[in-house]
Design a protein around this nucleic acid. Structure first.
Lengths: 143, 143
DNA sequence: TATTACCCTACTTGTTTGGTAGGATATTGT
DNA sequence: ACAATATCCTACCAAACAAGTAGGGTAATA
């Protein structure tokens, strides 16, 4: 299997909720966990990770919580995937952010490399353009 | 991580070798393992799996070995990925061959679903068209 | 200064991945 | 026939990872 991890799916569910609450002040972790049915402590880890990566910001103490840092249209789906799920490419040797040379393979003359490079480009062409805004419940259309 | 597994990469390396030897009779597992630097017993499992899936065929006894069943242009890269690596889609709820309903998510009104559906289509558009033939060492061009 | 709520480290449990071991079975040359 | 060859099959093992839990530390605020 190589799908998005459970963690990544939780992250997107939480982010969707936060998009819906954008500009309405901090949202409690416990609130998100309850509404989106995500294990509380696990969600804590995920949100913290997204904060460290610069997607979210938080406020401590009473009246605190998490909220999306910039306008939802500023954060791409690709960025989120990379943070909570890792590489987007199907091979290390075609990854832009997680590149690793492949063992026993001449990249200049490797058919698989070429195919996977095309897949990467096609995928990124979508994931880099789509943003958190596209995940919101009330969105109009995806064009 | 959600890249192709080590196993899948081994599979493609082995298949590349078999494409190069197409129509030259059965090839020994030990030959492939040696030339492509793949652990012998592990490779046995992989080739067997590809045989059961109908990609390869084999001959036992002296002069035996593995060989590609149909013409290399008949087997898509997508088919191989599904056999040795599983789903191609990033979410179960957009998978064609490994579909599963997603928990707590209305597919009809889910932004992430729509995005991942597009990614799936873009990916399959490439992986279904590319074949084992494209992996061969001596190929001319990828057009 | 007590309460709230995020922050942080560490741990546990179950599953998957990447192999290995050893023999059973089928084929073929002599 | 029979020995050699080479695939086929079942089971096992260790390390890595995923998913989730525990428990307290720290900062803000009323």
């Amino acid at each position: 299997m190589s799908m998005l991890s459970n963690k990544a799916q939780y992250a997107f569910r939480a982010l969707t909720y936060l998009v819906d609450k954008y500009n309405q002040g901090p949202v409690l972790i416990s609130d998100i966990a309850k509404k989106k049915k995500i294990p509380l402590k696990f969600l804590e880890n995920i949100l913290l990770e997204l904060k460290k990566a610069g997607i979210l910001d938080s406020k401590k103490g009473k009246g605190g919580g998490y909220y999306i840092k910039e306008h939802p249209s500023k954060t791409s789906v690709a960025a989120v995937v990379r943070i909570v799920n890792g590489p987007i490419s199907m091979l290390p040797c075609v990854s832009l952010y997680f590149y690793e040379r492949c063992a026993n393979c001449d990249e200049k003359n490797c058919g698989l490399h070429d195919v996977m490079e095309q897949v990467r480009d096609a995928t990124l062409n979508i994931l880099e353009k789509r943003t958190l805004e596209d995940l919101a419940s009330g969105r109009e259309s995806l064009g």
